[in-house]
Design a protein around this nucleic acid. Structure first.
Ligand SMILES: [Zn+2]
Ligand SMILES: [Zn+2]
Ligand SMILES: [Zn+2]
Ligand SMILES: [Zn+2]
Lengths: 158, 158
DNA sequence: CAGAAAATGATATATTATAACATTTCATCA
DNA sequence: TGATGAAATGTTATAATATATCATTTTCTG
């Protein structure tokens, strides 16, 4: 069993640093500006592997002493999602950080209903099954979301 | 190519009648009450193959002369979704009628971004791929949603 | 530095959803 | 049949999520 969800005691600072480094790179390549506000929101999202709502981000920014309004957060989220740096979980109205923003992938998310963490799969079997199903009914795919809710291994066994 | 989406000129009255008959049956089997309000909401949802929002339903009921408040609509929707008679499209916050409420299925929806119609697939390849992916990472599935957006065959070719 | 474009600030409001309590409807059975 | 309790709906208020619009600031470009 591969470990899709990070181990309990993992070095999360490494996750954050790696995510930031990748984000810098993506922004650089795309000639997009990784502004202060965008970096703040991105970093907040990466404070955990859970999906976080726009208003939780807003509250966190406010707690940091900033006077921020909803549009500011939604703009940052729009920027980050369009670059593929964060993804939106439709069934939660919440966002989490992508750990492979450089590699093409459909959205395939495992969402633990117990601990709240989200892990992203890049699974060719699923992608192929979706593409094949679409082809068989003459459907032209623009975007796909696969949201799988349940218990991660940690939560199922502890 | 099988026709997942109904033909333009299909006899939609048949869809509606069949859906109503199936709903009656499911309610009967589940010993659930298919009340006036639930039937009204269900019928409104089945006025097309598009996904419809709670407030569109509310407006339609109001236009019918009823004085209905949001909770009434949401309660009917909760009842209908729990019985599997309608499904919620998470990425649209909207609802559409299930045409196979009697057969077990994960949620696999094709959503046409042009005409707005939603068609449900019951595709074993996709289901198996999801289950296999979950198994391989030790994830216990509780619920799955596959939402595939794009163009239906009609819209892609016309 | 001037001017244009991009980003953010600020205000208002739209959209989606639920909490809480009152009233009505309906099945059950004494 | 009529009391009674459960289920459904009505009613009011409000929470949670999201966007439109215009003003101001920041950054880029020449
Ligand atoms: Zn981590
Ligand atoms: Zn978990
Ligand atoms: Zn039809
Ligand atoms: Zn279409």
């Amino acid at each position: 069993m591969s470990d899709l969800f990070p181990q309990k005691g993992h070095d999360h600072d490494r996750c954050v640093h790696s995510a930031l480094a990748q984000a810098e790179k993506v922004c650089d390549v795309e000639n997009a500006r990784f502004t202060d506000m965008r970096r703040k929101v991105f970093t907040l999202i990466w404070q955990s592997h859970k999906a976080v709502t726009a208003y939780e981000l807003l509250d966190a920014l406010t707690a940091d002493g900033l006077r921020v309004q909803p549009p500011t957060v939604y703009r940052a989220l729009e920027f980050l999602t369009e670059l593929g740096l964060v993804h939106r979980v439709e069934s939660l109205n919440a966002y989490f950080g992508c750990d492979r923003p450089d590699c093409e992938h459909l959205g395939q998310y495992f969402i633990c209903t117990d601990c709240g963490r989200v892990a992203e799969a890049v699974n060719e079997d699923m992608s192929n099954a979706v593409r094949k199903a679409a082809r068989s009914v003459g459907f032209t795919i623009q975007a796909t979301t696969v949201e799988i809710k349940g218990l991660c291994h940690d939560c199922a066994t502890h």
